[in-house]
Simulated scan of single mutants.
Amino acid sequence: MSALLRDVTSAVGDVPALLAIARKAGTDAPQPGQGRTARLWELLASVAAVDVAAARILEPHFDALAILSQAGKGPGHMDGAWGVFAAEGPGSRLQAKAGDAGILLSGSKPWCSLAPQLNRAVITAYAEGGGRAAFAVDLHHPGVTCEEPAWVARGLREIPSGTVHFSDVPAEPVGGENWYFNRPGFAWGGMGVAACWLGGAVGVARDYRESLAAGAEAGREPDQIALAALGETDRILTAALQHLARVAARIDGEAGASASDAVETGRSAWSEALRVRGTAAAAVERVLSLVSLNRGPAPLAFDEPYAKRMADLALYVRQHHGMRDDAQLGKLTLEEECPW
């Protein structure tokens, strides 16, 4: 992993280089649910601690390869740089229709990050049965048109997300109708994103610790408020990372987990994902608040790596749906799907 992190460090801000790193790392990256889930999440978190945007590039590529593997696709399907496009948006609809030439996709898909720079993607579309299904598509097909994103965000500036239009684009089914959302791997992928969030927060915490140490060396010993913030940051991140590790062990059936305790079904996996993602998002929000309040405006204005990390992470964690996700979890908890 140290070689990968060195490569990422040298490629920060260089999207083609980071995509090349993703392709290379993806050839032997761990996949969730195959005994090395903790290793995968540690890798993603470690990359995010170096650069949040780099993790935002590697994570969907790894996720796409895992999805293809879960659907029984062989390595021959996995060449190039991949994305995963499953978001929906008002006024956008992608439809899959079967014909003599196979399945064709037509319509629009929002939130397609880096689509012009990717080779292929796993993408969800509405099937003729009314549900949604996943398909593998070639993003270089002439029927694919990528809009220029109106990306004004200060965070993740090198990873704009825009709408992609499809006109009779051939698509290869990946699983059946509704398979994509019902498989345990959907929840596992969501928890992999949470690992990236936590890794980004670790990077922020390291920035803070190093700033206090540098101040102490210069004769400015941290006061109790600064130390209290560092202590709270430590326990928040330690608890969230330990939670993530325990869930990874349960997914892989390790650490003495019984068959009944393992995270097997899509339903139980999703309730676990809601806990992990909510815990990670809350930890990130608190760490961002603690560190920014204690470090003040100067590093946000003049320390480019720190300012980038803060902006990238603040935007990335907004993928969490807050109280709406908690409402989903509350419903499952009311139905007695809870560990307590």
Rank of each mutant, 00 (worst) to 15 (best):
G33H: 00
T37I: 08
T163D: 13
A150W: 11
P60E: 05
Y180D: 04
A66K: 06
T233M: 05
L293M: 14
C112A: 08
L156I: 09
D79A: 08
I67C: 09
S2N: 14
A218L: 09
A38Y: 05
P173S: 04
T37R: 03
W151S: 00
F186E: 01
R235C: 03
A273T: 03
T145L: 13
E172K: 02
K24P: 07
R295W: 09
G89S: 12
I67P: 10
A96T: 08
I251M: 12
G189P: 10
A280N: 09
W188S: 02
E158S: 12
A239D: 05
G203R: 04
A96I: 01
G189W: 04
L65W: 00
A25Q: 01
P222F: 03
T27Q: 14
I159N: 05
V263A: 12
L315H: 01
L65K: 02
R295G: 00
I225A: 15
S211R: 11
R154G: 13
V12R: 09
Q34I: 05
L334E: 15
E147P: 07
S292C: 15
K24M: 10
C112S: 06
K109P: 04
P116T: 08
S289E: 14
E337A: 14
W151C: 08
P173I: 09
A248N: 11
A187E: 00
R318V: 10
E285I: 08
G278L: 02
A311Y: 09
G35H: 03
R157K: 14
G330T: 12
Y306I: 04
H243F: 07
R56W: 15
Y306C: 08
V8A: 07
G102W: 13
G89P: 03
R318G: 08
G322R: 09
G33Y: 01
G266P: 01
M310H: 09
H320K: 02
I251V: 11
A49M: 07
G175E: 02
D207A: 15
G185E: 06
I21Y: 02
G253L: 07
R324I: 15
Y306Q: 02
A314V: 13
R324A: 15
A48P: 06
N182Q: 14
A17Y: 00
L227P: 04
W111C: 12
G296S: 06
D100V: 14
A259L: 09
R93I: 15
E158G: 08
I225P: 04
C146M: 13
D14F: 09
